[in-house]
Amino acid sequence: MAIGLGIIILTFVGLVLLGVVVYLVYIFNGLVRLKNNIKKSWSNINVLLKQRSDELPKLINSVKGYMKYEKNVLNQITKARTQFLNAKTMSQKAEADNMISGALKSLFAVAENYPKLKANENFMQLQGRISGLENELADRREFYNDSVNTYNIRIQSFPDMFVARLMKLQEKEMFKVEEKDKKDVEVKF
């Protein structure tokens, strides 16, 4: 075979091989980044959960004088907060988060029945702050689920699945919101 043809074939094979190797490296690095993105987005949720948890005692203090007959609602919040503070795993924290969100919805709905409380500046500020945190939490849960979704699709798609298998990556669970927490709070007058 002529030397020129040999060099051409070698160059072609070399470039294709280089392309494949670089692609595999990108897949590996991409999967590592995706895995870390999920961890990071969970940490970012956790920061807000902690901030919200720190605001709850202040909220309870500001409302308990007005809402003597709503002990049940206040107890729910305290109980959910304790559960959050004792939670060790991600799923336990997620469960406690759902409980707190549900209890807060009830509290803010019931607060509508107390005009004096609604006129309290401190309560209004806390409500605004907690509602703001709730909105940010909703965004970050959505972001977390987007990250998990992208990761799950990647590790099941061709050709990423081969690299994912070598890395022993497994499907991750999304952040679930309980069906009862999606419903509007019923307020009894």
Binding site: G19, Y23, N37, S41, N135, D139, F143
Partner: peptide, 28 residues
């Protein structure tokens, strides 16, 4: 050829990154 590989890296990075809402931006 090498430019194509760099574009591939960018494409995968954009595909892998979910869009954030500005209200809840995290650092990084």
């Amino acid at each position: 050829f090498f430019k194509g590989l760099i574009w591939l890296k960018q494409k995968r990075l954009i595909e892998n990154m979910p869009t954030s809402k500005i209200r809840s931006l995290a650092m990084g």
